[in-house]
Write a protein that binds this DNA or RNA. Structure first.
Lengths: 247, 247
DNA sequence: CTCATTTTTTGAATCTGGTTCATAATTTCG
DNA sequence: CGAAATTATGAACCAGATTCAAAAAATGAG
């Protein structure tokens, strides 16, 4: 039935409009300032209409994160397809995470907020599931890289499955970003930030996993060059959907 | 002036009462259900009185985290004083983090929430500073352990300072816990939790840092025994302030 | 001890902003 | 075309954080 198709498409478009505008408002004013009535008004709809798409304000925030999760997945897939060695793919994912935060700083903060008990529990179950569903292929992708390295003999298994092993770099990457994001914390430590730091740490971990080829960390220049090169390979992959969540 | 001293002490005690009750309510009902008026009522004070201690609800949440930060510091100091090798001290800190989450699951969630832009920005500047002030000696303690290992030749510097190096295990530890805390995420990955996982990963990192003595990860039984022993050494240190934040 | 003054407490009133729902507008279709 | 069904509207509602004028308590000079 073509009528229903049209309706559905219109509904979808309107949802995207709400999400785009919300992302824009969050980026410019902060999460705190985002209010439902003004958002609806800014999109030229009534408050009630907004609530036909999102069961609550928190639900809308989750929707934003879910949508971005799709983009992240596409990005990660492109990275996995890059013609570089497996070890470098892991680093490239870390680079992608870093670039994403540079492009959309507000999005990283939103994500931190959304995974909070208070927000998570106030969203609809279906929206939560949407986010969880995104994470599954994401983890398969990462563990796929680890699995390929295992199969190629670049990496011993340390008595773990590929999935289990893949958690380590993932945790280090997100942990490192979270620490950095936590306002003023590293500064309170008396630490001035060095862009190579995270990659040193990641290499230390990968070396510990005996993931070939091992990296010599004493050659700072080589490390910087490697990072530079990865950034240049990853950055263009962003162009496709920089528009989707305008900042 | 003794009158003022008494007043100050009473004020302090009342603040502790508010915090204790708040912690208790959060533990039993969740952060979301914590309401200012009922909290004041439960402590047999008026709402306004509560606001003489905390500038906002968020400010109270930060106060809770700040108070716990003091306990954490004391705990970590005791661990640093343990008669075990430096490498094991780092693991012991990780164990402590894990035990703390087991004892006070709601506290970990609170901390995640508090470091969120929305909450952080709504607390008073002085309360924020209190938390940051806590973090400084904490980081000095951790980097002190790293520094001792460097000095003892157990660990090469990899072109980093002790503080910079100490960030790596810290990030891995918190990142790993955060991932686990994020509701349903690891389950969505299809991962069933193995209590040794985190320690394997930590050892992989420490091995990568070439932190002596290196750990053989193929001997699962030895690893489990080591973890068991660390838990037994760390657990008693908690007894001192388990009461402070009743769960 | 008394009373004027200062400090502290109180909780009802205020205010903000998310959510609902009766009504109005629009679309569908016989 | 008009009745029935669907969708949109936004003022009213409501929860809950915050305030503040009034009441109570503490202080201390005489």
């Amino acid at each position: 039935m073509t009528v229903n198709e049209r309706k559905e498409r219109q509904r979808f478009d309107r949802e995207q409009l709400f999400l785009d505008k919300a992302a824009q408002l969050i980026a410019s004013e902060g999460i705190l300032q985002l209010q439902m009535a003004p958002l609806a008004r800014a999109c030229e709809y009534a408050t009630g209409t907004l609530y036909q798409h999102f069961s609550s304000k928190e639900d809308l925030l989750l929707a934003l994160v879910a949508r971005n999760g799709c983009n992240q997945l596409k990005l990660f897939q492109q990275i996995a397809a890059l013609a570089i060695c497996n070890r470098h793919k892991i680093l490239a994912l870390c680079v992608a995470e870093e670039l994403a935060r540079e492009y959309h700083p507000s999005h990283a903060r939103l994500e931190q907020y959304v995974f909070t008990e208070v927000v998570w529990e106030n969203a609809s179950a279906s929206r939560r599931q949407m986010i969880l569903d995104n994470s599954k292929p994401l983890s398969e992708l990462v563990s796929g890289i680890v699995g390929a390295a295992l199969a190629a003999g670049e990496l011993p298994d340390h008595q773990c499955t590929a999935l289990e092993l893949s958690i380590a770099p993932w945790a280090l990457c997100t942990g490192s970003h979270n620490l950095e994001q936590t306002s003023g914390l590293l500064a309170a430590f008396g630490l001035n930030k060095d862009p190579l730091q995270r990659y040193r740490h990641m290499h230390l971990l990968l070396n510990g996993m005996q993931w070939q080829p091992l990296q010599d960390l004493n050659d700072t220049a080589a490390l910087a060059a490697q990072l530079q090169q990865l950034r240049q390979q990853v950055a263009p992959l962003f162009s496709g959907f920089c528009q989707l969540t305008v900042e």
